Computed example of a mutant assay.
Amino acid sequence: MRIAFDLDNTLIRCGYDFPLEKPKRAMLAKLLGKEELRQGTKEIIDYCH
């Protein structure tokens, strides 16, 4: 089974205000990108896996 997520306004904030995850490695997260993920994203991806 394949599951697709629309990143904008679903997992990544783009104009809508929702709680965000706090990255475990903040410096690495800043180097790799500036989008922060919605709170609970890791858990839902782990569940789907």
Rank of each mutant, 00 (worst) to 15 (best):
M1F: 14
M1S: 12
R2P: 01
R2C: 05
R2V: 12
I3M: 02
I3K: 07
F5G: 02
L7F: 11
L7I: 14
L7W: 04
L7T: 11
D8F: 07
D8H: 08
D8E: 10
D8M: 02
N9D: 15
N9G: 04
N9K: 13
N9V: 07
T10Q: 08
T10Y: 06
T10F: 07
T10A: 15
L11G: 00
L11D: 00
L11T: 00
I12E: 05
I12L: 15
I12A: 10
C14R: 13
C14Y: 13
C14V: 05
C14A: 08
C14F: 10
G15S: 06
G15M: 04
G15Y: 09
G15I: 07
Y16N: 10
Y16G: 10
Y16H: 12
Y16I: 05
D17R: 09
D17K: 11
F18P: 07
F18H: 08
F18N: 09
P19D: 04
P19G: 05
P19K: 04
L20M: 09
L20C: 01
E21C: 13
P23G: 07
P23W: 05
P23Q: 05
P23R: 08
K24F: 03
K24H: 03
A26C: 03
A26P: 13
A26N: 08
A26V: 12
M27C: 08
M27K: 13
M27Q: 10
L28G: 09
A29P: 00
K30T: 11
L31P: 01
L32I: 09
L32F: 10
G33D: 12
G33L: 12
K34S: 13
K34Y: 11
K34W: 14
K34R: 13
K34G: 11
E35D: 09
E35I: 00
E35Q: 12
E35N: 15
E36S: 14
E36Y: 05
E36I: 10
L37E: 01
L37P: 01
R38D: 02
Q39P: 01
Q39V: 04
Q39K: 14
Q39N: 14
T41W: 00
T41L: 01
K42M: 02
K42Y: 00
K42T: 01
E43L: 09
E43N: 15
I44F: 03
I44M: 15
I44N: 05
I45Y: 01
I45E: 00
D46M: 04
D46Q: 13
D46H: 06
D46W: 02
Y47C: 06
Y47P: 00
C48Y: 09
C48E: 08
C48P: 00
H49R: 11
H49P: 02
H49K: 07
H49D: 11
